[in-house]
Design a protein around this nucleic acid. Sequence first.
DNA 1: ATAGTTTTCGTAAACGTTTACGGAACAATT
DNA 2: AATTGTTCCGTAAACGTTTACGAAAACTAT
Lengths: 352, 352
Amino acid sequence: MNEDKSRHMKGIRRLAKHLNISIGTVSRALNGKPDVNEETRKRVLAAAVELGYEPNQAGRSLRKGSTGAVGLMIESSPETAANSDNFFLGLIDGLQSVLSRQSLDLLVLPCPSEEDPNDYLQRMVARQLVDAMILSATQHRDPRIALLSGADIPFVTMGRAGFGDSHAWIDLDFEGVANRAIDRLVGQSHRRIAVAVPPTDVNLGSIFLDGYKTALRRHGLPFDPDLVIYAKTTEQGGYVAGDQLLGLSERPTAILLVYELMAIGLYRRLSEAQLRVGKDMAVIGFRESPRSRFLSPRLTCFRMSLHELGGSLAESLLAVMPQFQAQYPLGAVHMIWPMELVEGESDGPPGG
Amino acid sequence: MNEDKSRHMKGIRRLAKHLNISIGTVSRALNGKPDVNEETRKRVLAAAVELGYEPNQAGRSLRKGSTGAVGLMIESSPETAANSDNFFLGLIDGLQSVLSRQSLDLLVLPCPSEEDPNDYLQRMVARQLVDAMILSATQHRDPRIALLSGADIPFVTMGRAGFGDSHAWIDLDFEGVANRAIDRLVGQSHRRIAVAVPPTDVNLGSIFLDGYKTALRRHGLPFDPDLVIYAKTTEQGGYVAGDQLLGLSERPTAILLVYELMAIGLYRRLSEAQLRVGKDMAVIGFRESPRSRFLSPRLTCFRMSLHELGGSLAESLLAVMPQFQAQYPLGAVHMIWPMELVEGESDGPPGG
DNA sequence: ATAGTTTTCGTAAACGTTTACGGAACAATT
DNA sequence: AATTGTTCCGTAAACGTTTACGAAAACTAT
């Protein structure tokens, strides 16, 4: 060929020169357009790998108006870092497994802790480096939702937001977990059951609390506000939750944690008070982690597949992206993600 | 103004029409170029916020050949998810704090577990959506390094790679930690000290092991290959490391963990064997986490600031980016990140 | 052989920026 | 008044793609 002439060129132009055809044809060949001879398409594809050609994303998305990437916004503050733990990495893997089937790339967009999440999201959206967004850790009445709706960019949120919630979302089954945990504890003849939640402005806390209350009511048990312990969803939070638990005048015999991570701190605080977890105090956690199986005693908690959750999240995102609605005709999905009880040794009848 | 006429336009053109000036001037005003009247610059800036203008990234980077973003490549396999824990989120926050000062954005690029990391990196680089890369979890002789060097894209790695290592890197002080841990244990009159490392093809393992060996030699203690336990760096890995430990004919009195996470599994295994951590078996971990303070007994381990590490990583990246070498004239930094001992209750003289 | 159809390809415009270049306006110097 | 310099701004080309359009070529059917 005339590699001599194509040597100094770049991009698709180089490829075209190399093959002695026009750049239009090269582009069509690479993009699987129908009006190109199969023979030449083969030659183009072969030359592409030979020359290591990859289309320039800037040029492509400038012309197409779409980027072939979706964004996952996370917050990287030390606070979230402690909480979210390995949650995101598991989720990401599930997201990719579905997105890659549509040759969509995932970009994780971490909002700096110094910047306002709204400003950050606004900037990212305006820059148009993704076609759609996944929002994690949505707060009650999260303003980011209005922003994305207004900008008319497809998105899905991990977590309800408490509006009419007409947008697509998936949320964990906080009510179900609270219900089944109470059922189990009451079945073990516990009567005074505490619950640890983050401050109620966090969405998940109030939902969990609602589940807790209705479950108590269902069993004819009174709701005692003293038994609601507000604490951070960290190891440290679990420890201070333990503090508060021990300080109660009429000590409960069981406690429900909205975050599995808190168990570590709680375990320590209880052992400092010479209380045996599972005997003197029943503990049930929320989401299972590799950790919970290796605590002693093993933590009773609820299992879910992060990978599958990520997959469903991706599918529900595709369902609101115009390009993919033919393949994923689901509409805006609203989904409560089911969780499965994992029996440990951290609960049991009061008094052992 | 003639908003009527500018209504239907987009981008910088809209702004220009709105102000009745040329798009060239608008662009220069926004980019802080000197040849623009301060008066008009003010008007442009004001109009930009008024109309909520954000430059289109595709157009900009197509023209400039740079994107204003740097990438952090991570791997999202379930394996890494378990290991890396909250490592990345902490790191990211530190990275951002420095990068944002240069108005650089950070894009986290998670390699799907199904895709070959090299192919993925190649794709991302070729797409030109970042100006520079940060590689995490570099392996021994990591081929990604050759790839980036060849593509002539600035990068820095988190972890040595064992080549000549002429590229910029920062790595944790595995030798120092191993040395000081051994010093401490020997000072507590331990003589048989085990060490748990991942399979040696992982870079950090062999370095840690080297530090362990030289420290033993320094104290005139023999190196016994039986005391090197190969295990995964997870809770599960800590548990099976405990298994192996207990199975040794001549049981050591102390063990050194290359990963703090393993402590949870090890604690459990030891308690199952009725051994008291810190009395019957001294345990020293590697990197401190919020967790280690709430284990009982508290884990003796080594502390570092993820935030500062991220900051240094970002600075050393800027130092190899041509655009910023004036401000960060460091050259290619090779840095061993220092760590500080945190005394817990998990070690002590043999026999309590 | 002609007209119509299909297949295949080249041409050129467009996407939204940035920037080299040159020109206009004005001030300062001779 | 002519020259030089400075300040500011508009024009237009470029970046690497994709794609609407039309034309040439190759069939098909009359």
